[in-house]
Design a protein around this nucleic acid. Structure first.
Length: 199
DNA sequence: TGCACGATTCTCT
DNA sequence: GAGAATCGTGCAA
């Protein structure tokens, strides 16, 4: 939980043959292992996919959603064998913007959409399941100490698209930097699944 | 072995 | 605003 807040303002860097791309983390979501129904590792569900969450913290957990997009997480379990992860939802582009635009096939006019969403930031940074389990302390994929974000500038809300998680969906485990233009708008006007309980 | 579905995004109307 | 795209994963039979 603390890690999710600490990640805000840090830089996520990916070095590839195309060049170095990096961005400032401006939005995160916490997923707290066995007891969190919204987590893939709920009820200690240990599988090929969730295995990395049970490993040491500070590693990449990247998985495919909806068959076409990837989500990037940082493992953060305090104790060994405790599956916790922080989903990075959006970044503020810092370097390699040209490369990211090329990867996303968008123009400068749409820069705001470059990395503002879990799937988008993975596309922009060139992340896929190939980078799964990568150690985030060493290149080519690593987290760099960035700027310190004032507590007052950190906002927290409920998580996005976890309607299926009963009471767990209402927990304010989504953190983002207040008034940052690159925070994803995904929590606004989300579609609710037919028959899904509303508040 | 087969089926249903999702921590999303984009395009079309 | 609504719906399609798309495939790995989990679960049931």
């Amino acid at each position: 939980m603390i890690v999710a807040r600490e990640l805000l303002g840090k830089f996520l860097v990916h070095e590839t043959s195309e060049g170095v791309t990096s961005g400032k983390i401006v939005e995160t979501e916490a997923y707290k292992g066995p007891e969190d129904k919204a987590s893939h590792a709920y009820d200690n569900l240990r599988s090929k996919r969730t295995e990395v969450q049970f490993g040491p913290k500070g590693h990449a957990y990247i998985y495919l959603v909806y068959g076409m997009y990837h989500c990037f997480n940082v493992t953060s379990g305090d104790a060994p064998g405790k599956p916790e992860a922080i989903l990075v939802r959006s970044l503020e582009p810092v370097s390699g913007i040209e490369i990211m635009m090329k990867r996303r096939k968008i123009s400068k006019a749409h820069l705001i959409n470059l990395t503002s969403g879990p799937g988008r930031l993975c596309m922009a940074l060139g992340l896929s399941t190939k980078q799964n389990v990568a150690d985030l302390c060493v290149p080519p994929l690593y987290v760099e100490r960035g700027v310190t974000v004032d507590k007052e500038n950190i906002a927290r809300t409920t998580r996005v698209n976890v309607d299926y998680a009963d009471d767990w969906k209402d927990l304010p485990w989504r953190f983002f930097i207040r008034s940052n233009a690159f925070v994803s708008k995904a929590n606004q006007q989300r579609k609710t699944k037919a028959g899904a309980p509303k508040d």
